[in-house]
Amino acid sequence: MKGGRPGRILAFTLLLLGGVVMVTPLLFMLATSLKTGDEVYALTFLPRAPTLENYVDILTRSPFGRWFAVSFTVSTVSTLSVLFFDSLVGYTLAKFRFRGRGVVFVLILSTLMIPTEMLVIPWYVMAKSMGWLDTLWGIMFPGLMSGFGVFLMRQFFLGVPDALLDAARIDGLGEFRIFWEVALPLVAPALSALAIFAFLGNWTAFLWPLIVTTSPGLYTVPVGLASLSGEFQTDWEMIMTGASIATIPTLLVFIVLQRNIIRGIMLTGLKG
């Protein structure tokens, strides 16, 4: 470890401060969800009389459960789709020689440079002409593949030795089984990292679900929570309650995959 004792004290102090800055809003969100409506604007951190009433209210008196289900479905399906197709494309770009391979890769990379705000109009036009407006499929389709995922997976597959794939060819596996049984298990850390990026990205997506849906029954959690914020009055305690519940799946995904994710992020850092 570099640096002496004072250096370490400074480093840990800065890290601690950073941690406090990151965690405080989350704790404030949780605290607010336990307050009554009257107490929300009182400048206290902890609720005077903690209550779970908001949780009962949001689950019984709003379509929150439905929004949660929509968000969960959209995020899960999109994540699985991204994992499958991005790794398939990344593998092909990394391990097969074919005419135009470089061009295809650059085209896919270039999609990373186009912001969502520029894409929503073409997406909308497409969704409208296909009859996908205000449907689950309409919310999902733009997130079923991502250029970033293709790039990430390609970089990882480049590190898989060709000799392993050749050995599998001689062992008699077809090309898809080589991908599935030999190459894919070797990039598990990258898959975990990609899974968390994809899940979080879809879980917190706001702009596109807001544009493509009109029926409250098809809102995702962020869109639904935003709808609780009215022109004259905002139920902050309700929004904070919903947001608190909404962090649970992301926490779960992170806890389950974290060992692989940290390895994955470290590896991508080294690779990039």
Binding site: A163, L164, D166, A167, R169, I170, D171, G172
Partner: peptide
């Protein structure tokens, strides 16, 4: 390759690590 009835030993062993 699988239909040629051959077996190959590679320079870097090429064992499946998992």
């Amino acid at each position: 390759p699988k239909d040629r009835n051959i077996a190959m030993v590679f320079q870097n062993y090429a064992l499946y690590p998992h």
